[in-house]
């Protein structure tokens, strides 16, 4: 049903505009809003990791245009965002790893992005902006109808136990396609 609907929508939207010769389709996807609505924008971190506590979030689904982008060519894709590391206990450093894949088993691949907190101490709240031009091997992911997103927190304690939370405050995905959407 989803695809059928979008054929109609595409006639009026993509067909009129996106199909305009060599004009590009640009998708600005607020990935943060998907994680926020699932309460996965804030992730606790521990070092050492207590037994039975996962260092990852459940894999999240992010919907892209439901038609997919067919055989379109991804001109460029980039990620921008900000992570706030709020340390509650201990000192050390934390890395925030972001995983994206078209398969649900996102944690079987290397992280797409790693954001390091630098040194954190109790009471710190360190905002760390980041940006990434997505590598060519990953770009074709964004022609599909949905992608899966995962987050892993890895802490290294210099004064254990290290405990706090990493709070994502923005995560924006921008994809520019050369249209061949049908």
């Amino acid at each position: 049903m989803q695809k059928t609907t979008w054929v109609g929508v595409t006639l009026m939207v993509a067909g009129l505009g996106a199909g305009c010769g060599q004009g590009r389709l640009i998708f600005n996807v607020d990935v943060y809003s998907f994680l926020k609505s699932a309460n996965r924008d804030t992730v606790p971190y521990y070092a050492p990791l207590p037994p039975g506590v996962p260092d990852t979030i459940p894999v999240q689904t992010v919907n892209l245009p439901p038609t997919g982008a067919g055989s379109s060519i991804v001109d460029s894709a980039s990620l921008t965002g900000t992570v706030a590391f709020v340390d509650a206990q201990g000192t050390g450093s934390v890395s925030y790893q972001l995983f994206i894949d078209t398969a649900r088993a996102v944690y079987t691949r290397p992280a797409l992005l790693t954001v390091s907190s630098g040194s954190v101490s109790p009471g710190d709240s360190i905002n760390t902006p980041f940006s990434l031009n997505i590598p060519a091997a990953i770009k074709p992911f964004f022609t599909s109808t949905q992608i899966y997103v995962g987050v892993r927190l890895a802490g290294t304690a210099t004064s254990p136990p290290l405990q706090g939370r990493a709070r994502l405050t923005a995560l924006q995905l921008s994809v520019a396609l050369q249209d061949k959407i049908f």
Binding site: A18, R24, L25, F34
Partner: peptide, 10 residues
Amino acid sequence: TNDVTFGIGK
């Protein structure tokens, strides 16, 4: 032949 921009969020 202009670009067309879509904004998508939850």
